[in-house]
Simulated scan of single mutants.
Amino acid sequence: PEAKTLKGALCRAIQARREHDRQTREDRVEPVLHSNFLIAPRKAPPYKCSPQGVINEIAEGPLRRARLARHQELRKGFISIFADRHAKILQHQQELRETYLRLHEEWKAKCADLDRDKAKPPAPGEGPSTSGRTTRRSAATMGDAVRSDLEMEQIIASLGNEDLTDATSLAARNAAKIPDMISVVKGRADYVFDDTNNRVLDPPKFYSSRTGFYDWTEEETQTFFEQFAAHPKQFGII
């Protein structure tokens, strides 16, 4: 019977060729491959090239020589860049050392001036100056004694702000709460994936109004009704 469609005719022709064709796959493929190799560019690898030949061509052939030449070209540039970078780092370190020594000498001179000013005897008629700010130099002389009402007021005012400026208090309040570690018994932790996908177990309770009226006892409810009847909508009195 004749095929009604082109697809059916092609399928029947291919099936008949498979049944009665005497040519093998190699007989059909080899001529095509041979013609392709003849028209292929000359730079293509030769036919039936061994893996070792490909490795030798890459490791010892023109590609390797090109890589080495490129490496030699870039080597001088990298050496110059790294040398300049190292020199700049050394120069920057030396500048930092000199700056530190200069500032340290200035600080020592400033401390010496402060010590000399402190060692001077007070002028006649002038008492020791009191300051509300306690420093490391003044803490040794002030101690815990309060010599005036002003110092007492300053101490009372500082007690309220102590928690806001104390590093220990701030760190205790802002410290992270680290949960307990998972106990590993057999060399690995057995995790369990428990995902309810936002499942609501008690919908009436979950979606109920949050008025708090249903949390009252019967006695509280009766008292509210009585007070509401006596003072309608006057919730301040109720």
Rank of each mutant, 00 (worst) to 15 (best):
E151W: 06
R147I: 05
D113K: 09
R17H: 07
W216F: 12
P41R: 04
D166I: 03
N36K: 13
R116Q: 12
T221D: 01
F213L: 12
N197F: 12
D190N: 14
A171T: 06
E19C: 06
S138D: 06
P232K: 11
P51C: 02
I39Y: 01
N161I: 13
L63Q: 11
W216S: 06
I39H: 02
R65H: 09
L159V: 12
K43C: 13
I14S: 02
H86S: 14
K186W: 11
V200P: 08
R64Q: 04
F37L: 03
E2V: 13
R133P: 00
F225R: 12
P62R: 14
A145P: 00
E226Y: 14
G127P: 01
D115Q: 03
G125T: 02
L33S: 04
D190P: 11
K120V: 08
A139F: 05
K108N: 08
D163L: 10
M142T: 02
K118A: 11
P124C: 04
D113G: 04
P124L: 14
Q227N: 04
Q91G: 10
K205E: 15
P128Q: 15
T24S: 07
P51A: 05
P51Y: 01
E126G: 03
I89W: 00
A66H: 07
V146K: 06
E73M: 07
P51F: 01
T5F: 01
N36D: 14
L114T: 03
E219C: 04
R25N: 09
A66P: 04
R102P: 08
A66D: 07
G236P: 05
N36Q: 13
A112P: 00
L101K: 12
F224M: 11
R17C: 06
R147W: 09
E218V: 10
Q154K: 14
W216N: 04
C49A: 05
T211N: 14
Q15K: 13
I39K: 02
D202A: 05
V192W: 12
H231V: 07
N36V: 15
E30C: 08
R137T: 11
D115G: 00
F193L: 10
Q94A: 02
R210A: 11
P1G: 12
D27E: 15
L6K: 03
A140Y: 02
A16C: 07
D149S: 07
S35A: 14
I14Q: 01
